[in-house]
Simulated assay, not measured.
Amino acid sequence: MQLYAQTRARRCRQVLADLTALVLVALAVRFALAVHEGIMLLAEPGRKVEDAGGSLASGLGNAGDAASNVPLIGGVLKRPLQSAAEAGQGLSDAGQSMQDVVGRVADLTAFALIVFSVGLVLVLWLPPRVRWIRRSARIRELHEAPGGADLLALRALTGPVKDLASVPVPAGGLADAWRRGDERAIGDLAALALRQAGLRG
């Protein structure tokens, strides 16, 4: 299986296309990760709320424990402090939930950007590469098959006229030479068809 053309110009174009696709994929991944980091900045308020709520709950819990040691009214003092500590813990939990939501949004956004960008690059780059690989394999098989040179010569004759300028023209013209079965003309035309496909005979 021929992955790259044998002619220099086409091979250079193919390598350039492959490198471009690779760079675009790398840039898409980097951009998605940058977007992920940007979205995660939105989790900072959640972290602050979690820290503040945790500190408040801890402080009020300690104050409630200390108040419970006050004779006679310790239990009465502890209850409101305990309720406030629970509210502080709820605030801390809300901050953690906010961070979780932001993290999920950041992950999904980055994943969607990577899938879309990489998919777009693959859709634009992969089909032409696969088509060329298949076509070059068929042309190579045709060239090696009996009578294949005649068919390749016909292909060259029906291709771009400007390419025929590189083929020596026998007396009577190339088409007449092909019809007469002129082996040299057929060989030259078949070689041209291979070059047009990026192959060598």
Score class of each variant (00 low, 15 high):
Met1Cys: 07
Leu3Pro: 06
Arg11Ile: 05
Gln14Arg: 08
Val15Arg: 11
Thr20Leu: 14
Thr20Met: 15
Leu22Trp: 11
Val23Phe: 11
Val29Cys: 12
Arg30Gln: 10
Ala32Asn: 00
Met40Trp: 02
Met40Phe: 02
Met40Asn: 03
Leu41Tyr: 11
Ala43Val: 04
Ala43Met: 11
Glu44Gln: 10
Glu44Ile: 15
Val49Lys: 06
Glu50Ser: 15
Ser55Leu: 14
Ser58Thr: 12
Gly59Thr: 08
Leu60Val: 03
Asn62Pro: 00
Asn62Asp: 05
Asn62Trp: 05
Asp65Phe: 01
Ala66Cys: 00
Ala67Lys: 09
Ser68Asp: 10
Pro71Asp: 11
Val76His: 09
Lys78Ile: 00
Pro80Cys: 01
Pro80Trp: 00
Ser83Ile: 14
Ala85Gly: 00
Ala87Thr: 04
Ser92Trp: 00
Ser92Gly: 12
Asp93Trp: 06
Ala94Phe: 05
Met98Trp: 13
Ala106Pro: 02
Asp107Lys: 12
Asp107Thr: 12
Leu113Val: 11
Ile114Cys: 14
Ile114Ser: 01
Ser117Asp: 14
Gly119Thr: 01
Trp132Ile: 04
Ile133Leu: 13
Ala137Phe: 10
Ala137Gln: 14
Glu141Pro: 07
His143Met: 13
Gly147Arg: 11
Leu154His: 10
Ala156Leu: 01
Thr158Val: 12
Pro160Ser: 09
Lys162Glu: 13
Asp163Tyr: 05
Leu164Gly: 09
Pro168Asp: 07
Pro170Tyr: 14
Ala171Tyr: 06
Asp176Arg: 14
Trp178His: 11
Gly181Glu: 04
Gly181Met: 00
Glu183Tyr: 05
Ala185Asp: 03
Ala190Thr: 05
Ala190Pro: 11
Leu192Lys: 06
Ala193Trp: 05
Leu199Phe: 02
Leu199Glu: 01
Arg200Thr: 14
